[in-house]
Design a protein around this nucleic acid. Structure first.
Length: 422
RNA sequence: GGAGAGAUGGCUGAGCUGGUCGAAGGCGCGCGACUGGAAAUCGCGUAAACGGCUUGAAACCGUUUCGAGGGUUCGAAUCCCUCUCUCUCCGCCA
């Protein structure tokens, strides 16, 4: 959420930012509402002041045993008028709030302007895509041949985009999760969190999934709970409403969770394999920083995620998202894309974003330095990494002509020393 | 699921026979005094949001906030209703 005062005082800057994103939201009605609200507020506050002063006087008179009936009658009317005004103000505030919640974050100045993902800009590459002297298989074919995935039974038991991992497939997924968590806790100073896999609507609003993106989530019937689309939601909202000690920043968390996404609008895309599931595993990195350090921390966060791919020996590239591809809440995002032979291209495996104070304002997460006033923290997060896609990348990049898969050395201890799935 | 207790400022904890209560006391924190320095002690000060004024900020003025929402009243931390959460006991359960 943007700062109301900022929007009020810099409507041109906000409009320009929204234009860059290709999000056409008219600010006129919003500004008019804001104007009206402040007028009403001044009016109501004057009346309240009168009520307070006179009520005090009534108390004094009654104590002294003097009549105050006339004042009481007058105040009765004043109170009724206040009530009406408060109702009106409340309605205006609700409208303003709803509008504000629907406005996306302002992209950072060095985010490239563009329409969509085709305008994203590559910033670096690591590793070389493998050269095969045979026809490489897609991970769904490798996995089924090795009997480590069962897509059909997943569909039978639940539906499309649900999968059973089986045998060494399940063990590999578990090994990758543990390897990622251990790397982030031991090498990157993250405190591990295992969060709830459901979160309420307030939390979903805090991180920006609601109110605009309800259709992307699964809601639990007869409750206010949603299945989390990412651990970002519970972990960021951990500190909602709190004032953190500035000395404790930055806070680094990593968290494993299952993630649930309705994938509305993705029908027909990535229908095979592990790439796009309604339920998938992810290790998430979440940071809380002060307002000065968040840009540097975004770079570090991205390196933390890349580190996993480097240790596993998976080739990847990093792109900075253009304004047209940038997520709603983000000020700047790097996508890390891993090489997938079956796609013959790089495929997103991590998305690292600085939200600046956008989420913090929604979730009311602040910090205080010394005796200073509370300020909103900056929040960042990134996948570190999507586990299913990592497993897919391992299968495809490290497959052999015989249909087996070599296990990257750092994962072997997590699989009891296993070097190859055959 | 049944019965009960509770939710107050950064923390703890009074107030809860309605009217100088934004709220005592303590702790913590900040500044100062004392000291060679420190501890202890003493003094002073310590919430936030919104709005007005202002080029901006500060100061100042006003409003709101004692879990959330609603009600009674001229006036609510205090009375009533609903909800949420926490704790205790019982039952059930991985």
């Amino acid at each position: 959420m943007l700062d109301l005062k900022f929007v009020r005082n810099n409507p041109e800057a906000v409009r320009a930012a929204l234009d860059k994103r290709g999000a056409s939201i008219s600010l006129e009605p919003f500004l008019a509402l804001d104007e009206r609200r402040r007028e009403k507020l001044v009016e109501a506050e004057k009346l309240k002041n009168k009520r307070n002063v006179v009520s005090e006087e009534i108390g004094r008179l009654k104590k002294a045993g003097q009549p105050a009936e006339k004042m009481v009658l007058e105040m009765r009317e004043v109170s009724a008028a206040i009530k009406d005004m408060d109702d009106e103000i409340r309605n205006l505030e609700h409208e303003i709030q709803q509008t504000l919640l629907g406005i996306p974050n302002i992209p950072d100045a060095d985010v490239p302007t563009g329409h969509d993902e085709n305008d994203n800009v590559e910033v670096r590459r690591w590793g070389e895509p493998p050269q095969f002297n045979f026809e490489p298989q897609a991970h769904w074919d490798i996995g089924e041949a090795l009997d480590i995935f069962d897509f059909e039974r997943g569909s039978k038991v639940t539906g499309a985009r649900f999968t059973f991992y089986k045998g060494l497939g399940a063990a590999l997924e578990r090994a990758v999760i543990n390897f990622m968590l251990d790397t982030h806790t031991r090498e990157h100073g993250c405190v591990e969190v295992l969060p709830p896999f459901m979160a309420n609507s307030v939390s979903m609003t805090g991180t920006g999934q609601l109110p605009k993106f309800a259709e992307d989530m699964f809601k639990v019937e007869n409750t206010d709970y949603y299945l989390i689309p990412t651990a970002e939601v519970p972990v960021t909202n951990m500190y909602a409403g709190e004032i953190l000690d500035g000395n404790k920043l930055p806070i680094y968390h990593c968290a494993y969770s299952a993630c649930f996404r309705a994938e509305a609008g993705a029908a027909g895309r990535d229908t095979r394999g592990l790439i796009r599931q309604h339920q998938f595993n992810k290790v998430e990195l979440v940071k809380f920083t002060n307002q000065e350090d968040s840009w540097e921390e975004l770079e570090k966060l991205t390196f933390n995620a890349e580190r996993i791919l480097q240790l596993l020996g998976l080739p990847y590239r990093v792109v900075v998202l253009s304004t047209g591809d940038l997520g709603f809440s983000s000020a700047k995002t790097y996508d890390i894309e891993v090489w997938l032979p079956s796609y013959n291209s790089y495929k997103e495996i991590s998305s690292c974003s600085n939200f600046a104070d956008f989420q913090a304002r929604r979730a009311n997460i602040r910090y205080r330095e010394g005796k200073g006033k509370p300020r909103f923290v900056h929040t960042l997060n990134g996948s570190g990494l999507a586990v299913g896609r990592t497993v897919a990348a391992i299968l495809e990049n490290f497959q052999t002509q015989a249909g087996t898969v070599k296990i990257p050395v750092p994962l072997q201890p997590y699989l009891g020393g296993l070097t190859e799935i055959k």
